[in-house]
Design a protein around this nucleic acid. Sequence first.
DNA 1: CAGCAGGGGGCGT
DNA 2: CGCCCCCTGCTGG
Length: 504
Amino acid sequence: MAEGMLSLSWNNHRATFCHILSTLREKERYTDVTVACDGKFYQVHKLVLSTCSEYFEKIFENTPCKHPVIVLKDVQTDELEALLSYMYEGAVSVAQNDLARLIKAAEVLRIKGLAVPDEPPLSESCSKRVTQSRNASDDRSSPHPKRRRREESNTSLQGAQTSTSPPASPRVSSFESEGETHHSTSRTQSDSRWMDQRSSEREDQSTDHPLDDRLGDHTATSRSSPTPPQVEVMVDETLVKEEMVDHVDNSQDDIVDSGMDYGSMGSDSRLDGSGGGEEDPSSQMLPNKFEPKINPSQGQAQQLPDAVVEALAGPSGMQGWLSGCEMPTGFSGLEGYSGGDGSQDVHPPPQGQPVSQSQAHQLVERETNSQWTGGRRITREWQGLTSSKVHQCPYCPYNTTDSYNFRRHTLKHTGERPFSCPYCSYSTTRKELLKDHINIHTGERPFSCPYCQYRATQKSSLNVHIRRHTGEKPYTCTYCPYQAAQKSSLKSHMLTHKTKDHVG
DNA sequence: CAGCAGGGGGCGT
DNA sequence: CGCCCCCTGCTGG
C-alpha cells in the first residue's frame, strides 16, 4: 500500500503466545473460570475455553459472572486434562487406547478441531478473535480431523503410533506429560507438553502427536451416542447454581436459549455415583490424585504429632477452595447465596425447608434414573433469610443449617479428600478421620477400656467393646431371643432365619 | 467381636 | 473451625 508502510511481523508470535498462555495456566494467573471435574478443579481462562469450544463460549455468554464454576460430570479428569492441554497448546499426546474416550469427551464439550470442525475464521460469526490465530496456525490439524481418516483408522493409527512415537517418549498413557517438568499446581499435572512450534515448524511433530492427526474410527460410535454433557455452572458471586443439560446433537443454541434445560435429564451422571452407590471416589481418585500432596518422609512410622496432621491439612485444592477464598467459587458459594440479581437463577425455590411440593416433584423426576443424579437442579435463593439458613446439598437431599457441616458434606460428593496420610495412600475428607487413621500407623490407641486392658483407636470402637463388660446387647432379634451387641451381628443372625424360612 | 472408614449432629471457641 | 460424640456399614478373625 502506502509507500512508507512497513509490515512488522513477530515471527514467534504464535509460539510465544501459546507458551505464555500455558504458563499462565500453570500459574493460574488471570484465570477466570474453574472447571470442576470428578473432584478436581482446574483454573483456566474463559478466553481459551471459549476460543476452543463454542460450547463453553455459550456458557460464558450466558453466565455473566466473573468467575463461574463449571462442573463437568460426564468427563473424566484425564480426559479433561488432555483436552485442556489440547486447547492451550494445540496438541496433546494420547494413548491409542484412550483416544476414543478422549474424542468422546471432546465431542461432549465440542472442542474445535477434535469434535467439531474448526471452521475457518471467515465462515461464521460465532468464533471470534483468537480462534483465528489458532485456525491459521493449525493448518495441519484443524480442519476436520475427525472425519478425515475414518477408514484408515486403526491401521493408520497403529502405523502412526509405532512409527512416530519415539521409544523414549511413550505415548503417554494417561495423558500425562512426559517431558517438561511440571512444578506447577497440584491440580493440573497434565499439560506441560509444550510444543513450541507448531504450524510452521512442524518437522518434529513426530514426537508430539496432535490428536487430530490420528483420529480413529470411533467417530461413528461417538457420534452416534454423544453423551449429553451435564454441566453445572456455579457462580460464585451471584451464588447461583445452574445446570444445563445439553444435547450435543442439536447444537448449542439450545443450550443458550433454553439456557437451563433442566427438564431433560441427562440420565445417570457420575455424580450419582458419588452420592450413593458403588462408585466410591476413594478407590478411583485417591491414589493418584491426592496422595502426592504431602508425603513427609515415608517410612518412619513413629508418633505423628498433631503438628503433622496440621501440616497435612489443607494442601489440596479444595481446601483453598472452600476455605481459602473469601467467596469461594465452590459449593460453599452456594450458601451465602443471595439470588439478588440472580439473572440466571431460574428456580427460586421457596426456601429453607427441604423442598417445596413442586420442587420435590422435580427432584423426584430427576432421581428416577439414579439416586441423586447430578442432573438435579437445585438452586436456592436466599434473600436475606436470616437465622436458620438451610444449606441444601446440590447432590442429595441432605441439608443442614450448619455451614461447616455442609461443606464437610459436599466434599463427599466432590470426591475431594484434602487430608492425606503420610504413611499410606489414604486420604480423607476430615482431619479427625485422618487422625484416627494415623493412629493405626503409629499404634496409638487413645481410648482405653475401664474394665480391661483393651484400647481402641476409636471411641466408638471402645463403646462397642464396653458392651462386652456390661452385657448390653441392644440389638434384639424379632424372631427369637437372640440379642447382639453389634448390629452387624444381628444382621448376620437374621440371615439364619431367612435361610430357615427358605428351607422350611 | 474387633477394627476401621465414614458420616451427621452439635457444642465451644 | 476444631472437636467430640455417636452411629453405621463392612470386613475379617
